[in-house]
Simulated scan of single mutants.
Amino acid sequence: MTDTSITSLPPTLEISEQQGQRHITLSGCWDLRHVATAASKQRQQIKSYAADKNSHWNLEAISKLDSSTALILWQSWGETLPTVLHIKPEHQQLFERWQNQSVPAPNVTHSTVSTLLHTSHQQLTDVGEQLTNGVVLLGQLLLDITHLIRHPKAIPWAEISNTIYDSGVKALGITALVGFLIGIVLSYLSALQLKMFGAEIYIIDILGISIIRELGPLLAAILVAGRSGSAMTAQIGIMRVTEELDALSAMGISHSLRLILPKVAALTLAMPLLSVWTNAAAIFGGMLSAKHSLDIGFQQFFLKLPDTIPLVNVFIGLGKSAVFGLIIALVACHFGFRIKPNTESLGSETTNSVVAAITAVIMIDALFAILFMDVGMPS
C-alpha cells in the first residue's frame, strides 16, 4: 500500500476489552477534512469514553493528525491527557502545545442594556482621559513658555517660521477663494430680501457685521482645522510610526518644546492674519455682488463701511481667531501623540483630530457670541 493511500484512510475508532480495562485505538487520517465529513460519531464516542479515566488510549496507528483535530481530542478529553496514552512523538507535540496554552473563552453576549452601559462607561472614560491629557498638554506648554522667557535663545524660531509658512502662507489661496464665494452668496441672498423693503443700503451693515465679526474668522478656522490641523496630526503620527519620536527622546530633545510649542505659536499668530485676509476676500465678493444686484458703488461701500461697523468688532474677530489657532494646534498635537505605530490608528486619529478641532471652534465661537452679545453692535 502506498503512502498516499495510507494517509487518505478515513478515521476509525476501535474498542476492545483486555483484562477488564477498555482499550481505545484510533487509526487512519485524523485531520480536519476527514473528521468534519466522517467522524462525527467518533467524536461523540470519544467524549463518552473520556469519562472513564482508566481507559487506555492508543493513537500510534494514526497516519495523519493536524492541530485542529488535536484540539478537538484535547477538548473531548476534558483539556487533559489520559492517564495511559500511546502516541507518536511528533503527534505528542501537538498536545503539548495545548497543555501550555489556554484555549480562549468564547465571547459572552451581553444584554442590550448592559452593552449600552458598558459602551457609555468606556466613552466617558475616554473623554475624561482625553480632557486630562489636554490639561497636561496645556500645563506643559505653559512650562515651556516660562522656560523660553528665561532663555530667549532657546526659542525655536526656525520651526515657528516653517509652521507659519505651511499653515498660513500656503492657506492664502483656499481661504481667499472660499471667503470670496461666501461674500457673493451672502450679498446676493441679502439683496433679495432688502429689495422688498427698499433698504438696499443696509447691505453694507449686514456684510460688515456678519463677515468681520463671525464668518471670516470662523471660515478661516474651519479651513485651517481641516487643512493644517490634519497635517499636524499626521506629521506627529508618522514620526511615531517611523520611531522618530523615540529617537528625539533618546537624544534628550523635548517633544513639547520642538513639536508642540512651534505649532501652537505659529497658528496663534497666523490665524488672525488669515482672518483679516478672509474678511477682505469676502467683503470684496460682497461688494461685487452688491454692485451687480443693488447698484451700490465701490466708493460708497468703502465710505460707509467704517461708519457702520464699530472698530471693536475687528478686535473681537482677531481675538477669536487667535483662540481658534491655539485650540486647533492643541487638538492636532493631542491626537497626534495618541497615534499608535500602525496605519489604522494614523487614519483614525487624524479623522478624530479634524472633527474635534472643528467642533471645538464652533463651540468657542458660540461662547464668544454669548459673552460679547452687547459689545460692538451698532446702536
Rank of each mutant, 00 (worst) to 15 (best):
S5P: 00
I6Y: 06
T7Q: 12
R22E: 14
D31N: 15
A36G: 00
T37A: 13
R43N: 12
R43H: 13
S55N: 07
S55C: 12
N58Y: 01
L65D: 03
W77K: 07
G78L: 04
T80N: 13
K88D: 08
T109M: 06
S111R: 08
V113Y: 06
Q130Y: 00
L131V: 15
V135Y: 06
L142Y: 03
H147W: 07
W157I: 08
E159R: 01
E159C: 01
D166S: 05
K170L: 11
I174S: 02
T175Q: 00
L181E: 15
L181V: 12
I182G: 01
V185A: 01
I203K: 05
I206A: 03
R213Q: 00
V224A: 03
L245M: 08
G252Y: 13
I253M: 02
S256R: 08
R258E: 10
A266P: 00
A281C: 08
A282V: 01
F284M: 09
K304Q: 14
I309S: 02
P310D: 05
F324K: 02
L326Q: 06
L326G: 03
C333Y: 11
G336W: 09
F337G: 00
N342C: 04
V354Q: 11
A357H: 03
I358S: 04
I364V: 14
I370K: 03
L371E: 12
G376L: 10
M377Q: 05
S379F: 04
